[in-house]
Design a protein around this nucleic acid. Structure first.
Lengths: 222, 222
DNA sequence: TTCTTATTCAAGTATCCACTTGAATAAGAA
DNA sequence: TTCTTATTCAAGTGGATACTTGAATAAGAA
């Protein structure tokens, strides 16, 4: 037992998941799939790639065991293989944020400066939900809301927000949430609502982190 | 803010750490560095690669922010950049073990069958340590012991074990530990000791996991 | 059956990567 | 200074990777 060749093969095997995650487009796929299962064409649109290319990326993830797929009629739905994959993706983000100085610039270039953005923690949102003086807005695309959301949240995708502003209940403060720390949907929603004179805040991070903490969720399409 | 180009750049940046980890030899380096800092030539020997190649791998890890280096006289010592890197490496291992069926075969090919190996948990070892009826053996190479070890452990690298068997105190049961789940040193030590008629067991996983749990350690070379 | 739609497959190209070899630094010792 | 040792750099090679294009499946509708 235990000669070089087997050791190399073992470690080569261990890093397969890292290689699968080691591509920006595939990471985007994982980030979207953390919201719930999606068919190939929708995923391709989400990451702005051709369907053929997206399909090949998905098969790479499949081979690495990070996702699984199921056929339903004419479409094939992909989803994360398990919560371990989400943990890996989160550990990767944490490491990247902690150590590559260059990343700060990349984050700023994409999300801008959140210093002046009204942001509340999960704990704070739970308190407010118990008090009942808050409107929670899920601004992700509809299928992601359907796959699971914070209890009592209203689905109002950012893409529709401008035209459906009147649907947002008057009165309480509004808390918008989306996919996670690198998703801008909630930022845009808060901006739009604030411009309309409403009081609005962004939930820190997003739905997968809420779920990962074991907080209550609604309608996981049972 | 937030157009495709910046989003792609951000995710490309986020996965840099995964790409750096996405090579078996570099993963071996991380696994060794999780024991403590080491100079280039020793690392090259550990992963059975040329020094030039090892140096280039280390620089890749350096660029990704996973390790850092310091010069001391004529040698350059590399070490993990932070505990976040250890967490990432552990998350990767967990994901790999959970999802790629093929990995089971690779593990068996390298470590063999541990079913008949006497293995004890960290909790059990702590209990035994409090009772004081146990001899703890650190069978990793000397420099790794020097960089930190379980309190009261004796340093006895497997490579020296055969010739230094008489140094192992008589009486109590022996618990050997090493680098982690994919390290064979403790397995070999237990085998050797058992063959000598001693009662011996392997600690589950290894020193980094003991340390990560916040358990007491000795002599972190302050 | 044919037609449509969603997905995968196959071939081609430019780029990146791992490892080798041999030369270049750079710190310390003599 | 020269010599030694540890490490890095640079160039070269075979193989993997990302994306494109166009063809091939495969399920469902007509």
């Amino acid at each position: 037992m235990g000669h070089h060749q087997e050791k190399e093969a073992l470690f080569d095997g261990l890093v397969e998941a890292a290689r699968a995650l080691g591509n920006g487009r595939r990471a985007e796929l994982i980030d979207v799939l953390a919201q719930g299962e999606r068919p190939v064409d929708e995923l391709a649109a989400e990451i702005n790639q051709s369907i053929a290319n997206t399909s090949q990326h998905l098969q790479r993830l499949l081979r690495a065991g990070l996702v699984c797929s199921r056929r339903s009629g004419t479409r094939i739905y992909y989803s994360l293989a398990s919560p371990a994959v989400e943990r890996l993706w989160r550990a990767l983000r944490d490491t990247a944020e902690a150590h590559t100085e260059a990343l700060g610039d990349l984050v700023r270039a994409y999300v801008g400066d959140r210093a002046d953005l009204n942001m509340i923690t999960r704990d704070e949102l739970r308190r407010r939900l118990r008090q009942g003086d808050v409107v929670v807005l899920d601004v992700r695309p509809q299928p992601e809301y359907d796959a699971g959301h914070i209890p009592g949240a209203l689905s109002l995708p950012v893409s529709d927000l401008k035209s459906r502003l009147r649907e947002v209940p008057q009165g309480g403060e509004i808390v918008a949430y989306c996919r996670g720390p690198y998703c801008l949907y909630a930022d845009e929603a808060v901006q739009m609502l604030t411009d309309e004179g409403r009081r609005a805040a962004r939930l820190e991070e997003g739905f997968p982190e809420w779920k990962a903490e074991g907080l209550p969720i609604e309608h996981p399409t049972t």
